[in-house]
Design a binder for these strands. Structure first.
Lengths: 239, 239, 239, 239
DNA sequence: GATGAATGAGCGTTCATTCAT
DNA sequence: AATGAATGAACGCTCATTCAT
């Protein structure tokens, strides 16, 4: 899948176990990606079926199966692509920045700001994909097959990105005990707050459209305070 | 549903819209609750069906429908019960504690520590319910019906608990801008870290059994630092 | 399933593992039996599906599944019913016959003569069932599941009938070494010759309609000669 | 397909209607034969598909279709090859034997003894093919297309072999009324007993491995007694 | 109130086959 | 000659739900 920025064009690779035939290798494959994002957005992952997708792209289920063995794997493909793309954005945005604090700040901004469409990738609507990730990505791992899928390495993209950011934290404060937990919390929370803002506003304080970047603000502050060296002076509660 | 502690026995009420016939009003109803928790734990919410549940309780689907209009509502019932029960625990543990900091600390401990079985409620295995909540509760709102269900007030328990804790935060630091977001982040993260520890350990730093309470430690520290008055002196990144 | 002869009415029981809900316990069940025989006869077991059957009985697949877990089991049910019915016929025809030779002769006649409709059983067309057994019964065991099914006892009816006749042979000539093999050969050959007469006449010598009972004649002679005591004086071939 | 014995090398021809492109004319064709036997043996003819076969030979379904128009025809090809090979063995083993009895005896031994691998034909594992014939060959004719296929002459190999042996019987006893039926019964029974010995031992008396040749013994005795001139003195049963 | 039976709808999957290259 | 891609059609099965008892 091609991504271009400033005229540079790179290709994002997704783990081969996630598809049968590479959806990037043909027009039909790209149609599948494009419309699966659209359709999941419209009707939700539970209602999304290969039959409906096939109907929409004017083809048949058998064709879709040629590319993806199951809708689970398709979701995993989409989220993996998203995390790869995010990592690429991060890489680009932080390269040549010497200050680790600065790199962390940039990384958090990238991770937490709402995504809007971008025409670097012709058949991927990043804005739509972002909404899919917000509402559905946790279903990629919240299921019975998670262990088997993890053994197959299907969550590598997510884990790699998490690690990349955790590594910056370790650089800043090698003593901090929960870098990975902090990053995964931020990554998930960023999406959660977006979802809550839209559907369950009582559970958040950020506004629906978040034009002022409150999510970024909230989470950046959270992280920088958390990793500040030195213990807080607080009293332990009784048992 | 009855809960007893120190010999006191109270009844937790779940919103009436969540069930047809009150499952607490009959033996059959209680069997349904008991075995739905067990079954969801075993096979996951996606594979869980009223047919399988009926088989297990030696009855028929029609009987289950008498109590719950759909498996969605049953899940909502279970999670609501869980949040109500959590709020009750909180209430009990913080009553008569004057210091807001202390109350917050206690609340966070209750919210974030793993739950183990407790025989206060004969037909609810809280340990099992906790595992259901960890792995499945987000599916209660991550679906297309969330807005309609929210309008019906079906997430009241969750929101009330979130608010209760957010209010303590406001008491401590009225200036803090994201109390609700912070609490919902902590509530979800606490479950998430538990899930990650078991299935995707690369995404967390807490150990699978968390006997030392690292999750509580991690999140308590996070919260207290976040709400500490006074801004961090940090440099803004370029655009 | 009821069978009547001379005004007597008995019920043939088929092993309970072969069905979900007893097809004899309801009208719908009896319709399923009746039309599955008809349909298999018309289009063959390979083309026979629960969908087509459901269509024919004006119901749905789900209803059929209530009675039979798979078309394999349905076939097994039909053949088991057939063998049970055959054993019942045998029992009736041989009871009070003292001569073992005579009993064997009667048994062979029953086993090998073509079956024509009989209105003892209202919703089973024995003639049609006989044609199903001739053309399809071997598929009940010629498949990968045979061992598992045998362990479940699903071939008991066939084996019991085989044993019943083999026991008569042992009574006549306890020295004969292959009573079971001889009987199973006769049972299968009887159907095979019927099938060959209709479809591959070069492989048999009996005429299509076999009004003169040549199959019975051929096989009866075969059996009685085989079990005649005393070895044939024949020369062994070289290696 | 080449067969060699004692250094002599002959080619067995299979009816041309059974294939598109001659599978013996290319490496790919021979791979198809080799692996179809292996695959049918492993998963059974019902589960066997051109897709799975293509996968195994590292090619595509389209390629297989170039050689065989359907899996039915492929099975017919394999069984025809088997019967041709059997007839060839018979021919070889009986040539120059003057005594008809002796020839029959030899023929029966060839027909009824279990086959083990033989390296006369490099890409046909006769042992495996034998197992396919035992378990699957009857499906070549037990289907709706039998009449059309028979009209096309697709069962010629089977019928020719049957006739060859029946002719020996006629030579021995021209009065015997069922020579073809007797031979087809023996041919099928020989496979059936082999199958029963392995899967439904209650239906036979021969042991699973039959190292002592009981099948041959059982069937040879059967045949020689059957064709012995002179009627058995037996009493007819009443109606 | 609980149950047995039935049903419409749809899902995920696979198959045999064809066409263009 | 071999292959890659696509497709129409159907299959087996399960689900959520309803109705009559």
């Amino acid at each position: 899948m091609n991504v271009s920025a400033n005229g540079v064009r790179v290709t994002l690779h997704v783990d081969e176990k996630l598809y049968g035939k590479d959806p990037n290798s043909s027009d039909m494959g790209r149609r599948i990606l494009e419309h699966s994002i659209g359709l999941i957005n419209e009707i939700g992952f539970e209602s999304f079926t290969f039959r409906k997708l096939a109907q929409r792209i004017g083809s048949t289920e058998a064709t879709v199966y040629r590319y993806f063995p199951s809708k689970q794997r398709l979701l995993l493909y989409l989220t993996s692509w998203y995390w790869n793309w995010m990592e690429y954005r991060l890489l680009l945005a932080t390269s040549n920045v010497v200050s680790a604090e600065q790199r962390l700040r940039i990384a958090l901004r990238e991770l937490t700001q709402p995504i809007v469409a971008d025409d670097a990738t012709p058949h991927i609507d990043e804005g739509a994909l972002y909404r899919v990730v917000v509402a559905e990505s946790s279903k990629a791992y919240l299921n019975r097959d998670v262990d088997a899928e993890n053994r197959e390495g299907l969550f590598r993209s997510y884990k790699r990105l998490c690690r990349t950011v955790a590594d910056i934290i370790k650089e800043i404060n090698p003593e901090y005990r929960y870098p990975a937990a902090l990053v995964s919390t931020v990554m998930e929370s960023s999406h959660m707050q977006k979802y809550f803002a839209e559907h369950l506003p009582a559970l958040t304080d950020v506004s629906q459209h978040d034009r002022d970047g409150s999510t970024t603000d909230f989470l950046t502050d959270l992280v920088f305070r958390a990793i500040q060296p030195g213990a807080l002076q607080v009293q332990q509660p009784g048992p």
